[in-house]
Each structure stands twice: as structure tokens, then as C-alpha cells.
Simulated scan of single mutants.
Amino acid sequence: MSTRFFGEGNIGSDPEVKMFPSNGNQPPRGVMRLNVRFDNPVPSDNGNVDKGGFWANVEIWHRDVEQWAQLYQKGMRVLVPGRMVFSEWQDSERNNRSEYKVQADRIGILPFRISQVIQESAQNSQQNQQSQQRGAPPKSAGPDGEWSNPVGSNTYQ
């Protein structure tokens, strides 16, 4: 049984990733699992008040989850569209267990509580680390080449 789900919440733990080898004609793929606290903010006179949020395990299947897991951190605000799925199983002591989990179509990072996001190739990362050690400001690649990255500045060069 499943139903469509669309929720916004905070990640409660660092991501867990498990990779699976290719099987016949299917390429290798993996699953990334996050524990997310979905809230229910209700406007009040004193701002928003959380009225009955819940914790849910979120999982997303894809071949690139190992790289994606480096982007997600505990406390980060995310938007998750997907399906709410109910699953039942027996544990090692033969006890019946069940849970609701979210099988995500995607996991969007919302800009709350993020101070800086840097995504670059490994080669650019090494060059930036070397230039920062020499005291030079970090560089970012753009359509017209490189430009200075004014971290913490409101003016862009």
C-alpha cells in the first residue's frame, strides 16, 4: 500500500548509503537512507507553531547516491516528494514489525541553515586548497573562465 507524499523537514542523522552490484542487464545502483523530521507549521500570533510533526525514514534509489550522500548533512532542511509506503516484516526473533517510510522521487535541499555550498571537481578542489594555503581567495569556474568568489560579500565580481 502506498500514497503520494510531499513534505518539508529537517534531516535528523547523516545519510546511510548501501550499493548493490549490477545484476544481468541492470547497472549497479544504491540506496541512500535519511531520517527526517517532517513538521506541521501552523501560523499563530507569535509566528509559526509546530502542530504534530513526525519522524520518517526516507530512502532514494539511484546509481549516484554515493556522490549525493556527501551533500546531505544532519540539520539540513529538505523538501521530499515521493510515496509513503507501509512495509511489514519479521525480525530475527520472529517478532512482527512494521513501519511507514518515504520512497523519495528526489530530495531537494532548501536554503535554510546553509552557510555555503561548494561543488567542484576533485582537480579544482586540490587547486583551491593549494591557493588557499598560500593565502589566495578561492576561485570558481564560470562561463567566461574563473572569477573570485567573494565569500561573505554582497558584491560579486
Results as ranks from 00 to 15, higher is better:
M1G: 15
F5Y: 08
F6D: 07
F6C: 13
G7M: 00
N10I: 01
D14R: 11
D14T: 11
P15I: 03
E16Y: 11
V17S: 06
V17T: 05
K18P: 00
S22K: 15
G24S: 03
G24A: 06
N25Y: 05
N25I: 04
Q26P: 00
V31F: 01
M32D: 04
M32R: 00
L34N: 02
L34V: 02
N35L: 05
R37E: 05
D39A: 07
N40G: 08
N40W: 10
P41D: 09
V42A: 08
P43E: 08
S44Y: 00
D45F: 01
N46T: 12
N46A: 12
N46R: 13
N48Q: 14
V49Q: 13
D50L: 10
G52S: 00
G53C: 11
G53K: 12
F54P: 03
W55S: 06
N57W: 07
V58P: 00
E59K: 12
E59S: 15
I60D: 05
R63M: 12
D64F: 10
D64E: 08
D64M: 07
D64Q: 10
V65K: 06
E66W: 08
Q67F: 14
A69Q: 09
L71G: 01
L71N: 06
G75S: 07
M76S: 00
V78A: 01
L79V: 12
G82V: 02
R83H: 12
V85E: 14
F86S: 07
S87A: 05
S87L: 02
E88T: 12
E88V: 13
W89L: 09
Q90H: 08
Q90D: 12
D91V: 10
D91E: 03
D91G: 10
E93L: 04
E93H: 04
R94T: 04
N96T: 11
S98L: 00
E99M: 11
E99Y: 02
Y100A: 02
K101C: 13
R106M: 10
R106W: 03
I107G: 02
G108A: 09
I109R: 03
L110N: 02
F112A: 09
R113M: 12
I114A: 09
I114G: 08
Q116G: 10
Q116S: 14
A122K: 15
N124W: 14
N124Y: 12
S125A: 15
Q126H: 12
Q129I: 13
S131F: 11
Q132H: 07
Q133V: 11
G135K: 04
G135N: 01
A136M: 14
A136V: 11
P138V: 02
S140Y: 04
S140A: 11
S140F: 04
S140L: 05
A141D: 03
P143L: 10
G145Q: 10
G145S: 08
N149L: 13
V151E: 06
V151M: 03
T155D: 09
Q157M: 04
